[in-house]
Structure formats: C-alpha cells, structure tokens
Nucleic acid binder design. Structure first.
Length: 157
DNA sequence: GCCAACGTTGGC
DNA sequence: GCCAACGTTGGC
C-alpha cells in the first residue's frame, strides 16, 4: 500500500472557503481551476485517495490553516479548462488533449483554533514549511507528516 | 492599494 | 535559447 502523503491547499475564502467545502453535498468538491504546472503535477502524479490535506485561507483575515480534508478521487481532466465562459478557460487544453487536472477533496474537520501564518512562522518546528518560504506562491504544496501533525496539534485549543 | 516574487509568453 | 514584458499571487 502506498504511503499516505500530506498536502496544503490554498484558497481565498472570498472565492471558496472551508465552509463552502463543508456545505457541499458529501462535503466533497472538485478542486478545479489550478493553472500551474507544478501544482498540477502534484495532483496528477502524487496524490492518492486517502492523502491528508490542510486547508489554508490565503488573502484572509487572518491567513490561516482552518481545517482538514482528504483526497477522495484521484486526478482526472479539468473540464473548466475548455469552457470559454469559465474564469480559468485555457485554449491550450481540450477534451482530446488535456492539460489541466483536478482531484476531489472531502472536507473533514474544522480546527478549533485556526493556525495562523504568524503562528506557523513563530514555531521553530515549522521553519522549513514551504508556506513560509519567501516568494512561495504554489497553491498546492507538499507537507511532511511531522508538519501536518504539528499543525493539527496547534489547531487544538 | 502596494509591490516583491514568480511563472509564462513571445519577439528576436 | 535568451530575456524583457506582462500577469498573477498573496502578504502586508
């Protein structure tokens, strides 16, 4: 059996929040609109059902990890890429020649105590997280098991 | 609203 | 293949 992996997904809550995810049927949503090759490669090549996800609110007050989720469906083509009316339309992609992919995630649990970016930066155990690396903008990032568990511990009161 | 950092595009 | 210009991300 493949080893469980750990991820951090960023979302601007004004566009799509953790509450939005929890309000979906089955708390499950397609993670579409990703238009970055590195993030796509993580989804396409590395994510497996059961992998754990930290859900992070960017451009929010405060910016924080607010909940957990799981990968519930592995990568398949992102149909929003060939919808001319979609915000993330990309003419490079077509049903015959897929460029962009999605996975599905299921919202799991809201953290009682959201772990703010400031709290992450203040914790020496988390000093290597990509999230706090200068200039790091990836919307999907790998996280180590240790980092994931530290965030969860901080997320309890 | 500003702007640094980064990825992508396109001219050459 | 280089690199300047441009668009986007995201913290502040």
């Amino acid at each position: 059996m493949a080893e469980t992996k750990y991820w951090l997904f960023k979302s601007e809550p004004s566009a799509y929040s953790f509450d939005d995810l929890l309000n979906e049927p089955e708390q499950t949503a397609e993670w579409d609109g990703v238009r970055n090759y590195q993030a796509r490669n993580f989804m396409r090549d590395d994510m497996r059902v059961g992998d754990r996800v930290l859900f992070y609110h960017s451009s929010a007050k405060p910016t924080a990890v607010v909940g957990t989720a799981r990968i519930v469906r592995e990568a398949y083509p992102d149909a929003t890429a060939w919808d001319p009316g979609d915000k993330h339309y990309d003419p490079k992609s077509s049903p015959g020649e897929t460029v962009w992919m999605v996975v599905e995630i299921r919202g799991e649990r809201r953290l009682p105590n959201p772990v703010t970016l400031a709290a992450v930066k203040a914790n020496p155990k988390l000093k290597d997280m990509l999230l706090i690396r200068k200039g790091q903008r990836l919307s999907i990032q790998p996280v180590t098991r240790e980092e994931y568990e530290e965030i969860l511990a901080m997320g309890e009161l």
